[in-house]
């Protein structure tokens, strides 16, 4: 397979990179939705991130790559085991193609064993493969409804349940949902929108020098993926170490009351429904703080993650001409000025 484009070689798109790194440090933040024009490097960034992440510990031979250190959330097979051999596997990034069938997504009967031995066995699907990793859906706004329903259910329960003629399987399916799409081609269902922790709008860079830079790098990569990846290896390695350090630091990061208060005020000013917005805002800010090696969340962190954490949660007002990004910026201005 081709070397993925190095994450550190992506020009600009700082908000997208920040959101992806935040989700990589703390998957609990929820997924990332990347909306924007074609050709802004949405898929490139997601694949690049996967290559960037340090390999994770997993139970050897487990089809859901369960975490051997985890007390709960193991699959039945791992629970039944007395000793769990440990191994390291790359963080999975699983593509969910638009045309995928339900069987392929949730898993189905293992054909080979059924046909050859007449045995009922489960063959895991894409959700199983994505456990503890990323599930990436390009053109997420074009996804078939029945798949959307399925995803909404699994994403909120963290578990995939397959019941059929005595084939009864439930397995952990906790993943970071990453969706990308072009809003001009259709809107996203609100329920699914809500499942994404962060959302970013990416736009094409307007200045010619950075465009030239992008084209030059992309072209160099296309002509020699290996060589290009090697050239950026060191930079990627630094990012990898930063993510590892942030993960280690994360449990120690504190959010003082003043920060809690300002995030509440911000959410109130924007009229975002429910607790989810506040929680995500805080978690994202904590993750960002840990990425920067700080143990206290500051107002500046809140300010920087607020657009990503809130813009897709605003109640839509068709008569308000300004986009949600502008509305968030306005609210930030008001709340932080006060």
């Amino acid at each position: 397979m081709r070397e993925p484009f190095p994450f550190s070689a992506i020009v600009g798109q700082e908000e997208m990179k920040q959101a992806l790194m935040i989700a990589a440090v703390d998957p609990v933040v929820g997924g990332v939705l990347v909306f924007g024009d074609r050709g802004t490097g949405k898929s490139t960034a997601v694949r690049a991130l996967a290559a960037l992440l340090p390999p994770m510990r997993a139970v050897q031979g487990c089809r859901y790559h369960c975490d051997p250190g985890a007390g709960s959330g193991l699959c039945d097979e791992c629970l039944a085991k007395t000793t769990r051999e440990e191994t390291r596997v790359p963080v999975p990034v699983v593509d969910l193609p638009l045309g995928a069938t339900e069987d392929r997504v949730v898993g189905a009967l293992d054909l080979e064993r059924a046909l050859a031995h007449g045995e009922k066995a489960f063959e895991p699907g894409l959700l199983a493969r994505a456990n503890r990793g990323f599930l990436y859906i390009d053109e997420v706004n074009l996804l078939e409804d029945h798949l959307v329903d399925l995803l909404i259910d699994v994403a909120s329960s963290g578990e995939n349940v397959v019941e059929r003629e005595g084939l009864s399987v439930r397995h952990p399916a906790r993943f970071v949902l990453v969706g990308s799409g072009n809003p001009e081609e259709g809107e996203l269902r609100p329920q699914l929108l809500d499942r994404f922790g962060l959302s970013v709008d990416v736009t094409t860079p307007q200045d010619v020098p950075s465009r030239i830079d992008i084209v030059r790098r992309r072209d160099a990569y296309d002509r020699d993926p290996k060589g290009f990846a090697a050239k950026w290896g060191a930079a990627d390695q630094r990012l990898r170490e930063r993510i590892e350090a942030a993960r280690a630091l994360l449990p120690a990061v504190e959010a003082p009351d003043s920060v809690l208060e300002i995030s509440t005020r911000l959410c109130m000013a924007l009229g975002t429904d429910g607790l989810r917005a506040e929680l995500t805002l805080l978690r994202a800010a904590r993750s960002l703080a840990s990425l920067e090696g700080e143990t206290t969340v500051s107002e500046a962190h809140i300010r920087r993650v607020a657009p990503s954490a809130l813009r897709h949660r605003l109640r839509r007002d068709p008569l308000d001409e300004s986009g949600s990004t502008v509305r968030v910026a306005r609210a930030i201005g008001e709340v932080f000025a006060a």
Partner: peptide
Amino acid sequence: GFVRAPLFAL
């Protein structure tokens, strides 16, 4: 359009 237009042109 960007980035494919200049890349393809190249």
